[in-house]
């Protein structure tokens, strides 16, 4: 036992030497890496940080929403999801370009594993509504997914321009803002909008303006079907189609 202790205290000189001489990286001992930075590094890094925050917010929203086994587009569900989204977004300092990047990130499973159209649309709308910029341009032409619910509750003083097509429930509950869609929109566009303007350059789907309380919808192409409109105006190729007698809800023409 005593011997063992002694052995521990006095290192084997040969072993010591082996440790000292067997540094396979010895010749790089004095190498000092002088990293050169250009502003691009900073910009890219901060963009990454913001994107991570946005992604995190979305993931948290999904966690909350996952409690509902089936995500149904219902008034309460949407309001609740929007409130959760608002909570996370308020903490992030982002720009309009970050929103566009997030839209594309949604299509990359490496970056965002789950794309659930409802909450994703709500989250993007919240991002747009809380963005610093008054005018937001989202160049989404090459996006394979048509985002639903985009423009939800777009407030007065905001202009959201979307290049490309959007999905169902575009511009629902619009609150005075201006939503321009350079392509097509699907069903339930402008449903429940209270004021503001929706401009769709191409065609629009069924139930357009369902329970619409005010504002205007301009369609450059064809309106596939109108919903039960309470108040507001719908134009098809500069022609007023609501209020008017020619159209009935969900009539195909």
């Amino acid at each position: 036992m005593k011997n063992a202790c002694l052995k521990k205290k006095t290192p084997n000189p040969l072993q010591q030497e082996v440790h000292d001489t067997l540094n396979p990286f010895e010749e790089f001992k004095t190498f000092q890496f002088r990293k050169t930075e250009i502003p691009l590094d900073q910009i890219v890094q901060s963009t990454e940080v913001i994107m991570d925050q946005i992604r995190l917010g979305y993931e948290r929203l999904l966690e909350e929403e996952a409690k509902e086994l089936v995500w149904m587009v219902q008034y309460n569900t949407i309001i609740k999801a929007y409130e959760v989204a608002e909570k996370y977004i308020k903490e992030i300092d982002y720009s309009a370009e970050d929103i566009e990047d997030f839209c594309f990130a949604l299509e990359s499973p490496q970056k965002i594993p789950y794309l659930i159209p409802g909450p994703a649309g709500i989250y993007i709308s919240a991002l747009c509504n809380y963005a610093k910029e008054e005018e937001i341009v989202l160049k989404l032409s090459e996006l394979k997914t048509e985002i639903n619910l985009i423009g939800f509750r777009l407030p007065k003083g905001k202009r959201l321009m979307v290049e490309g097509d959007t999905g169902d429930f575009t511009g629902i509950g619009l609150e005075g803002g201006e939503l321009v869609v350079e392509g097509n929109t699907k069903n339930w566009t402008g449903a429940g909008m209270r004021g503001g303007k929706i401009l769709v350059k191409k065609n629009i789907g069924l139930h357009t303006g369902e329970w619409m309380m005010g504002g205007e919808i301009y369609v450059g192409g064809r309106v596939r079907g109108l919903g039960n409109i309470v108040e507001g105006k719908v134009y098809e190729r500069d022609k007023l189609v609501y209020p008017g007698k020619a159209r009935y809800p969900n009539l195909y023409y």
Binding site: N23, P24, F25, E26, E27, F28, K29, T30, F31, Q32, F33
Partner: peptide
């Protein structure tokens, strides 16, 4: 080289 220097 940085990785090797760090290794050292």
């Amino acid at each position: 080289k940085d990785a090797l220097a760090l290794g050292s």
